[in-house]
Design a protein around this nucleic acid. Sequence first.
DNA 1: TTATTAATTTGACAACTTTCGAATTGTATT
DNA 2: AATACAATTCGAAAGTTGTCAAATTAATAA
Lengths: 107, 107
Amino acid sequence: MWNNCGVCMDTKKMAKVFKALSNPNRLELYFQIVKKHEASYETDSGCLICEISKSLNIGAPTISHHLKELSNADLIFTERKGKYLVARVNEEMVNEVNELLKLNNES
Amino acid sequence: MWNNCGVCMDTKKMAKVFKALSNPNRLELYFQIVKKHEASYETDSGCLICEISKSLNIGAPTISHHLKELSNADLIFTERKGKYLVARVNEEMVNEVNELLKLNNES
DNA sequence: TTATTAATTTGACAACTTTCGAATTGTATT
DNA sequence: AATACAATTCGAAAGTTGTCAAATTAATAA
């Protein structure tokens, strides 16, 4: 459970997730992926990055970089569909984070 | 709802919270405050920082700095009790973050 | 009052982040 | 084949972060 640095194993993984969400533009990107994901739940059509990127005032290289960070933190999956990139939320991971953050007292 | 940078107002606030939780040592510090908070729920005795800091391998100035970040992000409250500093979780904020992170589809 | 313990401030430094422009790769359209 | 569009890679600039040592403040105990 504890490593030699006094930091819990899971803590590092979780810190990485939070770091991925810690930049406003990246967080907004994440929220838009979630929103599309929820909207297209029935069709399971995923979310085109080029559409999202129009609404964020940052260039394509930056978007690419941010997506990699979200992906590296296991918050999203990405997949190439021909010319386009499709992003999907990793629901399992998000639920895990939610559990960890939840306070469980009886107030 | 949206500002001129294409970033949602709440997004900045949330990004700040996630940034506060994005460093492993700071996250561990936060978790320990939560743990103590939950354990001492009945007595409402709070959590002494000097106790926690023994289990993290970082110096006092760094702890002080990290506490300020958690506090700045409204994740915790701190209060001086004589010689000691007592930390408490801001339950309202944590619940808010949890709501925002929660996925609401029917899977 | 002196010494001790807890916490903060300051200043510094290396490491990391965010972002961009330019060049490049991959795919589709004409 | 030539063009256009989507995305990635690279290299660099400007800014931010995590950490510490040294000095300082605050409160308590001897």
